[in-house]
Design a protein around this nucleic acid. Structure first.
Lengths: 155, 155
DNA sequence: TATTGTTATACTCTATAACTATA
DNA sequence: TATAGTTATAGAGTATAACAATA
């Protein structure tokens, strides 16, 4: 971060600064870059894969289709993601006892240990990235963003 | 929008809801989808190309390299974008009188007319998408997002 | 009939590196 | 030497459509 607004570069931006999408996009790019440089560099993980690990850890026996819904992506997109997590011994496709079409996703022991480390790295990243905001500003920002995209008051 | 949080789907999300990046990502995806369904459907334009049109309109004689810096992308990424705008008769690569290496980007007459229409569509899209937020909440949200990614107080 | 996971495929966005023509 | 624009290429990330196995 350089100036008041490094992407402005002294140039006029017209109505762009009045658009939520413009700022949300820039903030999202910035936070993903920070994630890549901190968490990603330490633990070799992306925000998307980290999110999947958390969802699997929090929802034992989750199927790929349910995970796809939760991540708001197509089922086919999940396949290669789980392939990667399995190849790295972070998660496994367990067979469902009741439905032979679907898998019960689970973390491996190694995956659980890795996730514990990742969580700490992610929280450090969050502290660093949000350092300019007070705790109440952070809360308020999350409240407003959630209200914006979910159309409701609270996460 | 369905529930308090449609991507939750009743599933546990662990620490994800405490992460700014998680919400910024979801909000950004949602606003781009809304843009595509409203402005994109009406005017056949993406947020990125719209942003470029605005920057060219606001900064007459802008070069591709300066535009790339403003958009925070590589110079090579700009090439095909300008190709598209030229192919659609929205912008032109004018020759610089002082530097024969660089172009002076400008809107065509058609581009200016199109941009006027697009601006209105974008503002309608903004009103719809941010309908759940009061004017002061919108202002506060922008203030906080900018403070987050620019590390300062004001856009 | 509908669902789960999979494959093949394609499209978009983006970056890197090497090139040319200028400066 | 350095910069502006270009090209070729590659890598994410994503979606669609069709398929086999199963419900």
């Amino acid at each position: 971060m350089r100036e008041r607004d490094e992407a402005g570069g002294g140039l006029g931006r017209g109505l762009l600064p009045r658009l939520l999408g413009y700022h949300l996009r820039r903030a999202q790019v910035a936070v993903f870059k920070h994630f890549a440089a901190s968490v990603g560099a330490e633990e070799n993980i992306t925000p998307g894969l980290f999110g999947m690990l958390v969802m699997i850890a929090e929802n034992p026996g989750l199927s790929q289709s349910r995970l796809a819904e939760a991540m708001e992506v197509d089922r086919s997109t999940i396949v290669t993601a789980i392939d990667q997590l399995e190849a790295r011994d972070l998660a496994v496709r367990g067979r469902s006892p009741t439905d032979r079409r679907s898998y019960c996703l689970a973390l491996t022991d190694n995956g659980r240990r890795a996730l514990r480390r990742m969580r700490e790295a992610v929280l450090r990243h969050e502290e660093e990235f949000a350092a300019h905001l007070s705790p109440s500003e952070r809360e308020e920002l999350i409240r407003l963003v959630v209200k914006l995209y979910a159309g409701r008051d609270r996460p």
